[in-house]
């Protein structure tokens, strides 16, 4: 059996009396893009920094590529690439020099020009890091993480603070890494990011994993999976039998039987000679699942 890239059993981390991570089990297979999704303060960064060897754990078993990150072994770091939430590089060096410098720390680095190409920094190669924009500096972070040609990459909120087009570019880069066969472990509080990138994801709230699976599995896991939304002209009043929720002027029906519900709704509308304005039928989104699960977690 192939060893998983990351395996956690009963991981706990407490700071004094507060418990940031309260017993997490996770398994990430080789070649997988895995997302740890959760609101700020849920324990994402604590978890990923324990995996990277930056923090100690209070309890539990942790394996990263077969190594115990608590032991801070050079052999493990030679196989890892890390993008922290905030990192610095020497700003007076050029982009190429920074990548070259870091590549030299690894036994089998990736070609520097290839790394610059992968991260879209080819044109900036000979500029000093000081002169780059915020988004470009973030790409330098990624380039530095890729310099050693790691098997496993940790990306802690890789697109926080990006504009929409920079985010799309970063996603393309991350997909490119997956295509190279790398295992990617990312944290994010963006649902669309997890949905767009991850093969599997886990939702974390208050230090506890509240759901694990593919985005499709998580969305399907709820009982009510389709949502019908519409507005009504001011004169019309919807009968209570539809069990609809009203949010200002928008009505919303959640149902497991969308065909049936729609049929009844349109039949009523035709009979009442009214119009279902802005009618939309959507699948329950990951966002709905996420908000529901993280809200439940918050009440515990």
């Amino acid at each position: 059996m192939i060893q998983p890239a990351v395996e956690l059993r009963g991981l706990r981390k407490s700071y004094g009396a507060t418990e940031a991570v309260c017993g997490i089990d996770l398994r990430v297979e080789r070649g997988e893009v895995f997302a740890l999704l959760g609101p700020n303060g849920a324990g994402k960064t604590t978890t990923v920094e324990i995996l990277e060897g930056h923090r100690s754990r209070s309890a539990g078993e942790v394996s990263v590529l077969g190594h115990d990150p608590g032991r801070n072994e050079r052999a493990m770091k030679q196989r890892l690439g890390i993008v922290l939430q905030q990192t610095g590089v020497d700003e007076y060096l050029t982009v190429r020099e920074v990548v070259q410098m870091v590549a030299g720390y690894y036994p089998r680095p990736r070609d520097v020009d290839e790394v610059l190409g992968l991260t879209g920094l080819g044109d900036q190669a000979d500029r000093r890091v000081k002169k780059l924009s915020g988004g470009q500096k973030r790409r330098v972070d990624l380039a530095v993480a890729l310099a050693g040609d790691p098997e496993l990459l940790f990306l802690d909120e890789p697109t926080t603070g990006f504009d929409p087009s920079a985010r799309r570019q970063a996603w393309e880069t991350i997909r490119g890494l997956a295509a190279l066969g790398k295992t990617v472990f990312l944290t994010t509080h963006f649902m669309d990011e997890a949905q767009a990138l991850a093969d599997r994801l886990a939702i974390i709230a208050d230090g506890t994993i509240v759901a694990t699976g593919s985005a499709d599995e998580l969305i399907g896991a709820g009982s009510t999976s389709t949502r019908i939304r519409f507005r009504l002209p001011e004169t019309a009043e919807l009968p209570d039998t539809f069990a609809a929720r009203r949010d200002i002027s928008v009505w919303e029906i959640e149902t497991d039987e969308p065909t049936h519900a729609l049929h009844e709704l349109t039949e009523w509308a035709l009979g009442a000679e009214t119009e279902l304005l802005d009618l939309e039928v959507t699948r329950r989104s990951l966002e709905d699942v996420y908000l529901q699960l993280t809200a439940e977690g918050g009440e515990q």
Binding site: I82, L84, T87, V89, Y105, P107, G148
Partner: peptide
Amino acid sequence: ARDEGILKRIRGTPL
């Protein structure tokens, strides 16, 4: 360098 995260970054590499 510590405040800018340069030291932490180095700590994550095999250097």
